[in-house]
């Protein structure tokens, strides 16, 4: 085991996985919320765009999205996010993970919106709140509270899905495993067990926390 730590940057790989998870979580929450708002909006064009977004990104394999974000945006279109190759790949990985999971965040939020009785929005409109105000004050706060459990599921899936970005060479946990496989096959069982434990330690608290939050913040009707 100690040779594993001597030979490979195990902590660096785990830390990379955590960074990918946290950053993509934040961005996918933001993008997913925006897309959900588009899907709720009274403007048909926005609704269409929102629906298309979800259909495209939810139904495309994550590997393709991550691969395209690097190959398509960087090599073909020449968009560079950093002069440093590894940072560049990392940033494209975050983009790929974010746009993909945003589709699931959007759907989680929509399931939260479906827990809200129609009368809430009507009452909001009838006291003169504009669409934006009723979204901010009434609909989204209740939707988030009703969507905590599915959002937690999305977050857990995201944490595990970060392993996909090994395809574009980001030095995270799956990358570590493939390196060990190539360079020190005798350590393979060790790195597998260690990585499995790492992911369990990373995801179980997400499940516990969102489970508790969803009980605590549940809107009583």
């Amino acid at each position: 085991m100690s040779t594993l730590f001597d030979q490979f940057d195990v902590w660096g790989a785990f830390w990379m996985t955590i960074k990918l998870t946290v950053l993509a979580a934040v961005f996918s929450l933001v993008i997913g919320t925006v897309v959900a708002i588009m899907r709720l909006s009274p403007v048909p064009v926005l609704r269409f765009l929102g629906t298309s977004y979800v259909n495209v990104f939810r139904n495309t394999p994550l590997t393709l999205i991550v691969f395209f974000s690097l190959i398509g945006l960087w090599q073909t279109l020449g968009i560079e996010l950093s002069a440093q190759l590894s940072v560049n790949a990392f940033r494209f990985a975050v983009i790929g993970l974010s746009v993909y999971h945003a589709a699931f965040v959007c759907e989680a939020l929509r399931s939260g919106v479906n827990t809200i009785p129609l009368g809430q929005a009507e009452a909001a409109r009838s006291i003169g709140l504009t669409f934006g105000q009723s979204l901010r004050e009434i609909i989204l706060p209740q939707a988030f509270r009703g969507a905590i459990t599915p959002l937690g599921n999305t977050l857990i899936a995201l944490a595990k899905n970060t392993t996909v970005v090994v395809t574009i060479g980001v030095a995270e946990t799956a990358y570590l495993m493939s390196k060990v496989n190539e360079d020190a096959a005798d350590q393979l069982t060790n790195v597998f067990i260690l990585s499995a434990v790492f992911f369990v330690v990373l995801t179980i608290p997400i499940g516990l926390l969102t489970g508790r939050l969803s009980k605590k913040l549940a809107v009583k009707r």
């Binding site: 009785p117 809430q120 009507e122 009452a123 409109r125 009838s126 003169g128 709140l129 004050e137 209740q142």
Partner: peptide, 29 residues
């Protein structure tokens, strides 16, 4: 929206904002 603010509406099912306190319900508008 401005017009609706001038027209009060009381519903059969009350429709108080479930995640806000009674005071917040009344002060929001």
């Amino acid at each position: 929206a401005r017009l609706r603010a001038d027209v009060g509406m009381v519903f059969q099912s009350f429709n108080l904002f479930a995640h806000k306190t009674i005071l917040q319900n009344v002060t929001l508008g």
